[in-house]
């Protein structure tokens, strides 16, 4: 079996780089949510279920809502 951990970490790095390089801030937020979800899978794979639970509920749930709520009060696109 191919190492699941390696695939997840590869996705993690791709998501992190994509979130930094995205000009559309709403897309960046969504990619950050995907990053959090993959991170929760990594924690589960490391047998740290409690941390995975926290990561899934706080990282993927509440943080996304709060960042989008903050985004609604500013401009959606990054200027450069």
């Amino acid at each position: 079996m191919i190492d699941l951990d390696l695939i997840l970490l590869l996705f993690l790095v791709i998501c992190a780089i994509a979130a930094v390089h995205m000009k559309d801030l709403l897309s960046a937020t969504m990619i950050l949510t995907a990053y959090s979800l993959i991170m929760a899978l990594v924690w589960t794979n490391l047998n740290a279920v409690d941390v995975a639970f926290t990561e899934a509920s706080v990282g993927a749930g509440i943080t996304t809502v709060l960042v989008i709520a903050a985004l609604s009060r500013t401009k959606r696109r990054e200027e450069d």
């Binding site: 279920v49 409690d50 995975a52 639970f53 926290t54 509920s57 706080v58 749930g61 509440i62 809502v65």
Partner: peptide
């Protein structure tokens, strides 16, 4: 088991949100 006050509280808050 896994979980606790913090995680459950976040889930309860998320339902109101």
């Amino acid at each position: 088991g896994p979980g606790g006050g913090f995680q459950g509280g976040v889930i309860l808050g998320a339902s109101i949100i």
